[in-house]
Design a protein around this nucleic acid. Structure first.
Lengths: 139, 139
DNA sequence: TATTGTTATACTCTATAACTATA
DNA sequence: TATAGTTATAGAGTATAACAATA
């Protein structure tokens, strides 16, 4: 039976768990939470107008990200400015410091995270990365 | 700059989230919890003696899996028999019903889960799967 | 004294539903 | 009446430490 294999989640789960273990100390060193980093990435890559839109973009409930936004704003990494055209809305934007923080954290994370692919030969690591990027881009 | 890419976790996270959404209804239909299914897989693939060893194998604390083991045992999917050589230990084993359940759930999951790779051409899907299996086997 | 399995406690996350202010 | 943001509440999940039985 050639199709005997583990479930995708059973194979991907442990990798993601290892990635968390690698990233959490890095995030802590930069004094940013995991969700804070997710928000900075989202705002930097594809700016959104409202908090609802941001929540939807990162797969969270609008009520769940408020504490994260409070922290990021207090740290000067994002701004929430009232929308003059619709005073219910608070327009979101990443600040220059937020962008710098995002870049700094990402540099550290990307320098450390590839160790989870150590089980593959170098050529296969490149292929895996390429396919994963392709898959991610297609969403 | 050719190295511009998303973090591994940022690319893998959404895939794992999609997999969860696909698998949870299937598990519910079979009346098995996610951790219950993880335990059945672990016991079927690489039998372990003690509950501690099982917990370690699936990356959980020994206290965290007790409720899961209770449910599985009550459903007749696993057995916990006292070890005569060390009466602190309860020897774990999967039952024939447990094995059948595992196979049935796995069949359904594997029939549904590959849709998360739909963003890749068929040939690349095969390559990705092969590399992922290789990576998983190297752990 | 250390270990296995268990239970109890507290803590973190999250989902849900209210609430306000606007539209 | 509906929507954006916020707050409050309750529930699930988890980590940690304590415990009884055995080694």
């Amino acid at each position: 039976m050639a199709t005997e294999r583990s479930d995708l989640a059973a194979m991907l789960g442990p990798i993601v768990r290892d990635l968390m273990a690698i990233e959490l100390p890095i995030l802590a060193a930069h004094e940013v939470s995991m969700w804070g980093y997710v928000v900075l990435n989202a705002l930097d890559d594809t700016p959104v107008r409202t908090q609802s839109a941001l929540a939807e973009a990162i797969g969270a409930d609008k009520s769940r990200i408020i504490g994260t936004l409070d922290e990021l704003q207090q740290a000067g990494l994002i701004e929430r400015t009232p929308d003059p055209d619709d005073r219910r809305v608070r327009l979101l934007s990443i600040t220059p410091q937020g962008r710098a923080m995002r870049r700094a954290v990402r540099k550290d994370i990307q320098a450390a995270e590839l160790q989870v692919l150590d089980g593959l030969p170098a050529a296969d690591r490149k292929t895996f990365l390429r396919l994963l990027q392709q898959l991610h881009a297609s969403r």
